[in-house]
């Protein structure tokens, strides 16, 4: 009477809500049914932050490393840059009841065009800046799928903090 796939059945009865996070965008949630999705990570990087006790999560999809490029744009949309997006990501999670000490962080993206020229390595710059900021703040990265030259889609489940990544149309894999 009950098929093996319990989650599948559950999903059928209680439609999960998909929250789409765009390019240079940030969303936070404390609703267990929410699944955050960000499509088409190229050189951009997605940062999923989660408090497993409070079940609060936030997802940032930033495009460029440093707000020094365009300060007024950063003020208008902090999610565009790593250095302005990350503080907003964490603060927004804390406002929903997350605790700094419990935060689990996973990242994906930062791909590059093949070649050595720095022009094509925006992804690498993004990752380097992200790591520096997290390191300075004593935050560990507990899972990642980064670099290389593939597109990525990331799904982030607020119910349990699971993060799945799909590379260039392949299968969804947990990180």
């Amino acid at each position: 009477m009950f098929p093996g796939n319990v989650e599948g059945v559950f999903n059928t009865f209680y439609a999960m809500k998909e929250i789409v996070v765009g390019i240079a965008d940030l969303k936070v949630s404390r609703h267990s049914d929410d699944i955050m999705v960000t499509y088409a990570l190229g050189s951009c990087v997605a940062v999923a932050a989660y408090d497993p006790a409070a079940r609060v999560g936030g997802l940032l999809h930033f495009m460029l490393p440093s707000s020094s490029l365009n300060v007024s744009k950063a003020r208008e949309n902090p999610s565009m840059f790593a250095d302005t997006g990350l503080p907003v990501l964490f603060k927004s999670c804390y406002e929903l009841g997350a605790d700094r000490k419990r935060m689990v962080v996973k990242i994906a993206g930062g791909a590059n065009i093949i070649g050595d020229a720095s022009f094509f390595r925006v992804g690498q710059k993004n990752l380097t800046t992200l790591r520096k900021i997290l390191w300075r703040n004593g935050i560990l990265i507990s899972g990642e799928d980064t670099g290389s030259n593939t597109n990525r889609t990331l799904r982030f489940h607020i119910r349990d903090g699971r993060v799945q990544v799909r590379k260039s149309g392949g299968a969804l894999e947990a990180i």
Partner: peptide, 19 residues
């Protein structure tokens, strides 16, 4: 555009950069 993520698709960023 490929870098920005408004990309082609399965090809991803797998192209050679010409400086």
């Amino acid at each position: 555009c490929l870098m920005t993520g408004i990309g082609g698709g399965a090809d991803g960023l797998a192209y050679r950069g010409l400086k």
